[in-house]
Design a protein around this nucleic acid. Sequence first.
DNA 1: GGAGAACGCCCTGTCGTGCTT
DNA 2: AAAGCACGACAGGGCGTTCTC
Lengths: 313, 313
Amino acid sequence: MRGLGYRRNSTARALKTRRTGLIGVVSPGDSTFGPSRMTLAIEEAAREAGYATALSVVRDPDPTSVDEALEFFLDRGIDGIVVIAPVVAMAEAARQISRTVPVVVLASAAEQTPDMQVLGIDQVAGARMAVRHLRQGGRERIAHVCGPEEYHDAQGRIIGWREELRDAGLPLLPLARAGGWSAADGHAAARRVLARKGGDQGGGEAPDAIFAANDHLALGVVQAVREAGLSVPEDVAVVGFDVVDGADFFSPPLTTVRQPFEEAGAAALGALFGAGAGGPDGATVPRVRRGASSGSSRGPSLIQPRLVVRASG
Amino acid sequence: MRGLGYRRNSTARALKTRRTGLIGVVSPGDSTFGPSRMTLAIEEAAREAGYATALSVVRDPDPTSVDEALEFFLDRGIDGIVVIAPVVAMAEAARQISRTVPVVVLASAAEQTPDMQVLGIDQVAGARMAVRHLRQGGRERIAHVCGPEEYHDAQGRIIGWREELRDAGLPLLPLARAGGWSAADGHAAARRVLARKGGDQGGGEAPDAIFAANDHLALGVVQAVREAGLSVPEDVAVVGFDVVDGADFFSPPLTTVRQPFEEAGAAALGALFGAGAGGPDGATVPRVRRGASSGSSRGPSLIQPRLVVRASG
DNA sequence: GGAGAACGCCCTGTCGTGCTT
DNA sequence: AAAGCACGACAGGGCGTTCTC
């Protein structure tokens, strides 16, 4: 009889079992690149585990908006929540949630507490890979165009850049902070870097390499370098971050760092229901196991990115 | 009393009212650009209307996968479904769904039936804008690097290119079909275009402009043009489609066509519950009204894109 | 193995109260 | 003053499943 047209009513089932089989993903509305890929990965892993995925987009990542998204999910009796939190304010807002439902936060740097797991991609390690590659290519004055302050990833990349320079005994050049993540922002910041020809605190000469905090910034950096009458990579090497679509055909093709977003998304779902808890129908969800590779024991579990070498540096 | 800690159980409510207040979005898993932006827009519009949005990603856009996604939603008692269908197979699979739930398909070309609304962005018009701009800039031999055949958008852009050339009395050059949407695909196709120096059916000379079916393809096209010893835009103008992030800092900055994805997403939601039906709590959802601008009366309602002129053509 | 209770909400029907004519 | 009317409080059944007895 189930063969012809019968379909179990999942609402009644949810009422009785007190599990909706729904998980919520809170995602920032801007910068659709990383977050959207993670969302897709979470959804696929969730479906695999028998869960459906609900989405809630947060336009401005302030605590109230995140709170609203969380409340929205709680009202709908969601079984678990993944918060994609590229900015500090989102991660902090997630911390406020009631302990009634498991929460995992995807962020490269946020303090983990017993009832809020954090995991992300190791930005420090990624930045070090980029800078190490530059330095092994013989560059010695490596500047950094970093992203906006409120982003975990921007901060992590600064730290990695600093650490690698320090360990290599290379001079620490002054930092150029971009106002956003776009090519125009990278262009403006790179002009500032190139303008300070010498004499100031960072050291005497112009940089021979620039590490940009993402590929779009790098695009603007390349442009600025050329406008200064210099060539890439001969005079100034440039490396980016993210492996944006088309980066292999930028001029020149961009050396950059690949972030395993898919892996991070899948790991987030594994972490949500990992502690032996089963799926909505009782099936067991495989728990993610992945060693924390840097940072304190209370920091997030980190996934390693990978360097992609092309012509720009 | 509701003030302190009470929260209405939406599951019980759904059981009684037979409405879950959930809508489903079926989205392709590849090419995350357009679809992901539309998904975000749908979610925001849905939340505005009191609905939550569930997501189901389809990795390979074949009919069985789409069917699975649709079944998945039906099992969960969803109130309506939006299918983002860039490829023909997805739109067709959506047609098979039972009439128990309203469905709207986001596709630039698919036949509309009484129980399946279709709406999308006018690819033909967008392509005509691009080609018209080229021709008004004095170009007369305008080639087209088109996208993979199974994509509605690729087909629409071919039609627009053809129509505009025909109406202007310009020669119709042979088409170069790219194998995908990436820069590498565009590069390969453009090399073929530039290799046929003359003598074949298309006419005697090499093109003085290339309309690429999207910005990534255009990136590869620019590269191929340069490898042929020609310059952009002096020898060969290039225009793209999509206004990808960073396109303003490509070298040269890319002339391209902006698709109002957000508007399309919001319109899809409006169309879902437009016919006087209210939101999950009875509130009325504003219906989208937008004139169909081309095609037969059974074709989709179309939203107009906009040309963005920069240095490449 | 088959009957029945319970999940929490919505909706209907009944009854009681207070006000009007 | 008695009867009618309007409205609010309250109890009960049922949505379709799961789980117990």
